[in-house]
Design a protein around this nucleic acid. Structure first.
Length: 139
DNA sequence: GCCAACGTTGGC
DNA sequence: GCCAACGTTGGC
């Protein structure tokens, strides 16, 4: 299983909307590196849901339930999307400031390449971030 | 609102 | 194929 981090501007699509919708097509990615990451996702992989721009924090966890398929919102070009399902909220959202201040997270793609909207997360970083956020597996 | 980083486009 | 101009993203 692989781990990821996906970004959304809360003004465009927020965690609250993700929770309300349950399963959501993750569309609108128009960057080749991000597309490569989307295409590498497998059903059952997990991703952090990150709020960019106004909140700048990991606010929840989602699971990939449908692997890459053509993005219906793309009017040109071979862009793809995946479907993600809400797993649960981070009990204590992990802020970007907190991540940047932590030497153990210096190698995180989120930090190294701030503009990439779909980033891989190593298993070690995943476990570490889950601890920081007080993540508990839902029953 | 500003600016830095970075991706894309287009002229040569 | 290089590089300048420009657009977009995202942190501050």
């Amino acid at each position: 299983m692989s781990f990821w981090l996906i970004k959304s501007e809360p003004d465009a699509f927020s965690w609250d909307e993700q929770v309300a919708n349950g399963v959501e097509p993750w569309t609108g990615v128009r960057n080749y590196q991000a597309r490569k990451n989307l295409a590498a996702m497998k059903a059952g992989d997990r991703a952090f849901f990150y709020h960019s721009n106004v909140q700048r924090a990991i606010v929840g966890v989602v699971e990939i339930v449908r692997e890459a398929y053509p993005d219906p919102t793309a009017t040109e070009g071979a862009w793809v999307c995946v479907d993600v399902r809400t797993v649960g909220p981070m009990p204590e959202p992990v802020s970007l400031a907190q991540i940047k201040a932590d030497p153990a997270l210096a190698e995180l793609a989120l930090v190294r390449q701030s503009r990439l909207s779909v980033c891989p997360v190593s298993a070690e970083h995943w476990a570490y971030l889950c601890r920081l956020g007080g993540w508990v597996e839902p029953a």
